[in-house]
Design a protein around this nucleic acid. Structure first.
Lengths: 333, 333
DNA sequence: TCAGAAAAAGTAATCGTTTACACAATTGTC
DNA sequence: GACAATTGTGTAAACGATTACTTTTTCTGA
């Protein structure tokens, strides 16, 4: 592989000149530039990014730290981040924490050691609770999950309102015995729980039940199974993320409960399956593309102006009313 | 940030010694090691991976180059790769080509410039056709899409057999007018087409139709729309990837065709929606976890033994017979 | 006690860039 | 035409690790 020295030699100039040509940093005489360019082309020279990164103490890479890229929400965000980064000539290091604080810390350290320029980060619950003691020495944008006591850029959903709207939608459609299932792995579940409870309270209702469980299909399935086997059953189930929604959906199928006639189902996040099943699932659609893009943009803004004050962008969810929660023929009221 | 020099100073030794302690490379006296360790701990020293990478001319990173991480097939593979890499202390650079050869080349170059140790790569159609002229100077494992004329490690599905089996399944269940929809963006579509045609031929049949289209939901939708609006209609549709399957499914719903009574539907790849819809979709399940893991392992094996001959691992797909292709009450035969 | 082997630690070059500084050549001013 | 200002290039010191090679220390046995 040819290095900048080879180019310099071939063009009969110093490495400094080659470097300046590369960086397009005047002053440089046009004919010198051409000679250098020719040498570069001839040798198929490509600058070594590692060396550049070492010297510059930064690199054109950003880290993306999320719980699991297989979660459709994060898949979509990952893709949006990658796109936005690509446009700026940056590449993306993908890190799945599996909600495991150790893995999370390991990756955070790794990204540091790799000299990444910035991090887009969806912290675990445990991280959030000790966030105060953590010092970000790399520009970081928090997504999806609120972090208290941190002067950091964030892109969040207005979870309380979204959950409120989603719950109210159920209430207005005649559902009364509404069970809630919330993820216990992040602050998000708690916020959505708050919106849920608020909406019920404002309509003079109380939750049929409210449970915090691990945000996995299996947990949703188990929890829903328990609900559906009880003598007293809910007429609607509210879920705080798409894993739980899927679990509940499967349980409803398993126990042959008609959606929405016997039990309505609503949740968060657009998924392919949620659109395709019959009836399709009513959800709060998060603007994933926008979240990813905004986060990346905030990051780049901070990179160019490290001292500006932290900014929090709160985005609105979008209620997609679909068949899984249509208005109820309420026999009792 | 503290460097190895600071540690050396604090421990009263030379940087060489610190480096040796770090690498666990004897000879080192136990008490010296302890002193160094203490200094490391006290200074919170973390080795700079960029410097290390520059010196060692390699890095603990691998690149993953696929068309689109949002394709569930690649999502699953990406996750498996990341897991396998993580276990070896490697991290993964994510690259989406969107089937665009320019983006692909740009990323391949980028990975080179980043000194990645290896690449896991699903090449575009265009790349494959000029593959002979490309020289991989970085260990590379090809996945999903066959590359001719390249001495490279590969992990592939036996596409011809899988498509054969899937087609035969339709035939044995009584379907006769079988239309095929194939992705035109990779060799995979062609191989699956071959299996499709072979199976029909071996049963004395000809394709009702066979079309190569862009592997997107929209294309599948359009193609299926055309098929379903014809006077003469297929009784089954075979799709070569999950994007097309989704498109066909939507079209069938749009035109209110009952699956499988009016038209059966089969395809490739496990997706959540394919499991959840009613009836669920019959598919060839690719062992994504195994593909990703095997590819990563092949890569590490090659890293430790650069001269061994290239190896191709061919995995079998697994036919999941589900409701979308149940046996037909064939009135005509 | 001491030569010589073995073990431990140090010195300094190196990886491929960027960039502060120095220097040379050119231009402009009076 | 002398001197300053400007412009273009070169020199060499970083960046933070690793590692041949060298030097110093410790150990061994007669």
């Amino acid at each position: 592989m040819s290095s900048i020295k080879d180019v310099a030699k071939a063009a009969g100039v110093s490495t400094a000149t080659v470097s300046r040509v590369l960086a397009n940093k005047p002053p440089i005489r046009p004919e010198t530039r051409e000679r250098v360019m020719a040498a570069i082309a001839q040798l198929h020279y490509r600058p070594n990014l590692v060396a550049r990164s070492l010297r510059a103490q930064k690199s054109a890479k950003i880290g993306l730290v999320v719980s699991d890229i297989r979660n459709p929400f994060f898949t979509a965000i990952g893709r949006a981040v990658e796109d936005a980064a690509y446009e700026q000539g940056y590449s993306v290091l993908m890190c799945n924490t599996d909600e495991n604080p150790e893995k999370e810390m390991l990756y955070l350290n790794l990204l540091h050691d790799e000299n990444v320029s910035g991090i887009i980060f969806s912290p675990t619950h445990q991280f959030s609770s000790q966030a105060g003691s953590f010092h970000f020495d790399i520009p970081t944008v928090i997504i999806d999950r609120l972090l208290h006591n941190q002067e950091a850029d964030m892109v969040l959903l207005d979870n309380v309102s979204a959950a409120y709207e989603l719950t109210e939608h159920l209430i207005l459609n005649g559902y009364r015995k509404i069970a809630g299932l919330f993820g216990d792995a992040s602050a998000t579940g708690q916020e959505r729980h708050r919106g849920f409870v608020n909406a019920l309270r404002d309509h003079g209702l109380t939750p049929f039940s409210a449970e915090f469980v691990s945000p996995r299909i299996r947990s949703g399935f188990s929890a829903a199974t328990a609900l559906l086997q009880n003598a007293d059953q809910p007429d609607a189930i509210f879920t705080s993320n798409s894993m739980l929604t899927a679990g509940v959906f499967q349980a409803a199928r398993e126990f042959k409960r008609k959606i929405p006639d016997e039990v309505a189902l609503v949740g968060f996040d657009v998924t392919e399956w949620g659109e395709f099943v019959d009836p399709p699932i009513t959800v709060i659609a998060q603007p994933t593309e926008e979240i990813g893009r905004t986060a990346t943009e905030l990051l780049f803004q901070r990179l160019s102006d490290p001292n500006r004050s932290a900014r929090t962008v709160i985005l609105k969810g979008n209620l997609l009313q679909r068949g899984s929660s249509t208005a109820k023929n309420n026999p009792t009221s």
